[in-house]
Simulated scan of single mutants.
Amino acid sequence: MNRNKGFTMMELLIVIVILGLLASLVAPKMFSKQSSSMRKIAKAQMQMFETSLDTYRLDIGDYPSSISELRKSDRPNWDGPYLPKAVPLDPWGNDYVYKTPGKDGFPYYLASLGKDGQEGGEGDNEDIIHQ
Results as ranks from 00 to 15, higher is better:
Val26Lys: 04
Lys85Leu: 10
Gln34Arg: 10
Lys115His: 12
Gly121Asn: 11
Pro28Tyr: 04
Gln45Tyr: 01
Leu25Thr: 01
Gly121Phe: 14
Leu110Asp: 07
Lys5Ala: 14
Ser65Gln: 13
Ile16Pro: 02
Phe31Gln: 15
Trp78Ser: 06
Pro101Asp: 03
His130Arg: 14
Lys43Met: 12
Glu11Trp: 08
Thr8Lys: 09
Asp62Trp: 11
Val87Ala: 07
Tyr109Arg: 06
Met30Ser: 09
Lys103Tyr: 07
Arg39Ile: 05
Val87Cys: 06
Gly120Phe: 13
Gln34His: 06
Met46Phe: 01
Ile41Gly: 02
Asp104Pro: 05
Gly93Val: 00
Ala44Pro: 03
Glu50Pro: 03
Ala27Gln: 04
Gly80Arg: 00
Gln131Thr: 10
Ser37Phe: 01
Gly20Ile: 00
Ala111Cys: 14
Phe106Tyr: 12
Ile60Ala: 08
Asp127Ile: 07
Tyr109Cys: 05
Gly61Cys: 09
Ser32Leu: 03
Arg71Val: 10
Ser36Asp: 11
Pro88His: 01
Ser37Asp: 10
Tyr56Thr: 02
Asp127Cys: 10
Pro64Cys: 05
Thr100Glu: 12
Lys72Asp: 10
Leu110Arg: 06
Arg57Val: 01
Tyr56Asn: 11
Leu53Ala: 03
Ser65Met: 12
Gly93Asp: 08
Ala23Val: 02
Thr8Val: 09
Val26Asn: 05
Pro76Lys: 15
Glu50Asp: 10
Leu70Phe: 05
Met10Leu: 15
Ser65Tyr: 08
Lys43Glu: 14
Asn4Pro: 04
Asp127Glu: 14
Lys115Arg: 15
Ser32Asn: 12
Ser66Gly: 11
Asn94Cys: 03
Ser32Val: 00
Pro91Met: 00
Leu89Gly: 01
Arg39Thr: 11
Tyr109Val: 06
Gly114Phe: 09
Glu126His: 13
Ile129Pro: 07
Gln34Tyr: 15
Val17Gly: 14
Arg75Asp: 06
Lys43Trp: 02
Ala42Asp: 09
Lys43Pro: 02
Met10Phe: 10
Asp95Gly: 01
Thr100Ala: 15
Asp95Phe: 01
Ile18Gly: 09
Tyr63Phe: 15
Asp90Asn: 01
Thr8Cys: 08
Ser66Cys: 08
Asp54Ser: 11
Gln47Lys: 12
Thr55Ala: 14
Leu22Asp: 02
Tyr109Ala: 10
Leu83Lys: 03
Ile16Gln: 04
Val87Ile: 03
Leu70His: 06
Asp90Val: 00
Ser37Leu: 13
Met1Lys: 11
Ser68Ala: 15
Asn4Ser: 10
Leu70Gln: 04
Trp78Ala: 06
Ser73Tyr: 05
Asn77Met: 06
Asp116His: 12
Glu122Arg: 11
Met9Thr: 14
Leu12Pro: 04
Val97Met: 09
Ser112Cys: 05
Ser24Tyr: 05
Pro91Trp: 00
Gly120Glu: 09
Ala42Trp: 00
Ser24Gly: 12
Val17Pro: 09
Tyr63Cys: 09
Pro84Gly: 01
Asp79Ile: 00
Pro107Met: 12
Gly61Gln: 10
Ile14Arg: 06
Lys5Ile: 15
Ala23Ser: 04
Pro64Leu: 01
Glu69Ala: 11
Gln45Ile: 00
Ala111Tyr: 09
Gly120Val: 12
Ser24Pro: 05
Lys40Leu: 13
Pro28Asn: 08
Thr8Asn: 07
Trp78Gly: 02
